[in-house]
Nucleic acid binder design. Structure first.
Length: 583
DNA sequence: GTAGGGTTAG
């Protein structure tokens, strides 16, 4: 149809352009542009509007701006395209000033004008602008338009103003599937996974989930370790024939990996005919999460051969995998490769990962050297990685250096105080440890409460430290006592040094044994058949005592126990953990 | 014709 003197009209061109723009195919778009010029449509307002939109989406803002300037009498649609173009290229000021021109001309704006103005893609620093826009929309009544309120819900979620988003969502009279999706994904992206899932259940009475919904829900399952809901979603995907959607499949791979089924994840990954950089990243970081650094490196090489260009996240995933497998030389090579062969400037996250690699492997001085030589100012993730390494390798001197920086940069983060206190305890410097904890108390900082989730059948059970709220609490504690008895016979000693030290020894031991992970394991032992694998999920890093105890339990009960903590997976079998005790 | 909701790291 195209070229060769065959006839095609401006409508055809204007129809092709959005599809090309959606794919961000600049080269294809430029060919369409050439065709349009050859066919004499260089002043057709429809074609030009399509081109403005195309060049904006391909980050060719200058070209878009130029074309817009050539339109003698731009209509509202045209203005909308240019306004959206400025916004998605982070030129908020130009976007707003064009909007003002439009208003001043007396033209009535529509919902698309507003949607194009809301800084959804780069919201940071635009809370005030968003608020003013919202006021304008409330006054003009345009806020009742579903796409407008959905865009506001999205931007507030991205600004971590989840309450504001929810208010808007609740107030919107006409809710579309997109409105629900925006709110549900807002919750998952803010880590409020349970709220996301309950909202999803609410939604189900009004709408059938689409690929966007499924993607968000799978992400929630992955974060939570909710394998049964994840499997249910997998069934839904099959029944609704959503297996060709790359977002859906990528999040499915991620869900299986984060719920402990790395084999299932890999099977799915291998079966995918289309894979993008995110798909590869998900699979690479899955291996990192499970401590298989070599497989992660292998996959990274395969990725390069497949012709997919790695992103900054790819390198982070590979580095992360190296750190959890103790692959120091490989990590250094990857970072070097990233800079010299791929032309990436390392982000602070890459530096933090490298510090983690060196520190975790015990090369603490080298890590400090690395920090000093970094061309960017080290932030909390960098010092945090060093502090974590000091904890593993019991280096109080460097821990002091790291934490001094951390307390200055991020004074309200209790995790760092807990880490430092644990370093001192490990060094048996109890007065120092106590004084660090006192700071937390004095400043009234809230500690994140630890909790562990275990699924029995389809039902998730959540335990907190010292939890007695479970209906089977009595049986659980009895099982725990029985286990502790057998463990003591096998030589297990409660590790109190990393716990609280302002309580009596006996009391300490009492508190230790009721950590949420031990309760969850005891419960799972009661509820599952002998020999069955046990999987538990903890929101924080597993403590040294629980890690040690789980080794003993795996041996005594002859069970494989898989623990996912905030950092990674631990596979316990026969008294040994796959992490090699460096976690 | 312009326009709202989605996956990966930490």
């Amino acid at each position: 149809m195209v070229g060769g003197g065959m006839g095609f009209d401006s409508t055809t061109l204007a129809t092709v352009l959005p599809a090309v723009a959606e794919l961000q195919e600049l080269k294809a778009g430029m060919r369409v542009h050439c065709l349009a010029l050859k066919a004499g449509y260089h002043s057709d307002v429809h074609v030009l509007t399509g081109l403005v939109s195309l060049y904006s989406k391909c980050k060719e803002l200058e070209t878009a701006r130029l074309l817009f300037g050539h339109i003698s009498q731009p209509d509202l649609i045209c203005y909308n395209a240019m306004i959206a173009g400025y916004t998605c290229n982070n030129e908020t000021e130009s976007s707003v000033s064009l909007f003002r021109d439009l208003l001043a001309s007396g033209e009535k704006v529509n919902s698309s004008t507003i949607v194009g103005l809301i800084p959804v893609s780069s919201p940071f620093g635009h809370l005030h602008l968003t608020g003013s826009l919202q006021t304008f929309c409330v006054k003009s009544g345009i806020v009742s338009h579903p796409s407008v309120s959905t865009a506001f819900v999205t931007v507030y979620c991205r600004l971590n103003e989840i309450e504001l988003a929810r208010q808007l969502f609740d107030q919107s009279k006409e809710k579309t599937l997109a409105s629900w999706n925006a709110m549900i994904s807002g919750y998952t992206q803010n880590g409020l996974t349970e709220t996301a899932i309950s909202l999803f259940r609410e939604m189900m009475s009004e709408f059938s989930p689409n690929p966007v919904t499924v993607t968000s829900i799978l992400s929630a399952c992955a974060q939570l370790g909710a394998i049964s809901l994840g499997k249910w979603a997998h069934g839904l995907i099959k029944s609704k024939n959503l297996e060709s959607n790359i977002y859906v499949l990528t999040s499915l791979v991620d869900m299986y990996a984060k719920c402990g089924s790395i084999v299932e994840a890999r099977k799915l990954f291998d079966s995918m005919t289309e894979k993008n950089v995110v798909t590869w990243n998900a699979m690479i970081s899955a291996y990192g999460l499970h401590g298989d650094g070599h497989e992660a490196l292998k996959l990274f090489t395969e990725m390069l051969h497949s012709g997919i260009s790695p992103s900054a996240v790819t390198f982070l995933s590979v580095l992360y995998a190296c750190s959890h497998a103790g692959l120091v030389r490989e990590g250094e090579e990857i970072l070097d490769h990233m800079v010299h062969n791929h032309g990436f400037e390392p982000l602070p996250e890459h530096y933090a990962c490298m510090v983690d690699i060196l520190g975790r492997a015990g090369k603490l001085e080298k890590a400090l050297e690395f920090i000093k030589e970094m061309p960017v100012e080290p932030g909390p993730p960098v010092w945090g990685a060093l502090l974590g390494a000091c904890m593993i390798h019991k280096n109080t001197e460097l821990a002091r250096v790291a934490s001094e920086n951390l307390f200055e940069l991020d004074p309200d983060n209790t995790g760092y105080y807990v880490l430092l206190s644990n370093v001192y305890s490990a060094d048996r410097n109890f007065p120092k440890a106590a004084s660090v904890r006192q700071v937390v108390k004095n400043r009234n900082l809230a500690k994140t409460p630890g909790c562990t989730l275990v699924e029995i059948g389809e039902t998730p059970h959540v335990f907190t430290c010292g939890d007695r709220s479970h209906p089977q609490a009595t049986a659980i504690y009895r099982m725990l006592d029985e286990l502790l008895g057998k463990m003591a016979e096998a030589g297990f000693q409660t590790e109190t040094v990393t716990a609280l030290h302002d309580v009596e020894e006996e009391e300490k031991e009492l508190m230790m044994k009721v950590h949420s992970e031990k309760l969850a394991i005891a419960f799972a032992l009661i509820e599952t058949a002998p020999g069955a694998e046990i999987r538990i999920f903890k929101n924080l890093r597993v403590c040294l005592d629980c890690h040690n105890a789980t080794k003993f339990i795996s041996k005594i009960t002859e069970r494989v126990i898989v623990v996912r903590d905030a950092n990674r997976f631990h596979h316990f079998k026969d008294g040994i953990c796959s992490c090699g005790d460096y976690w």
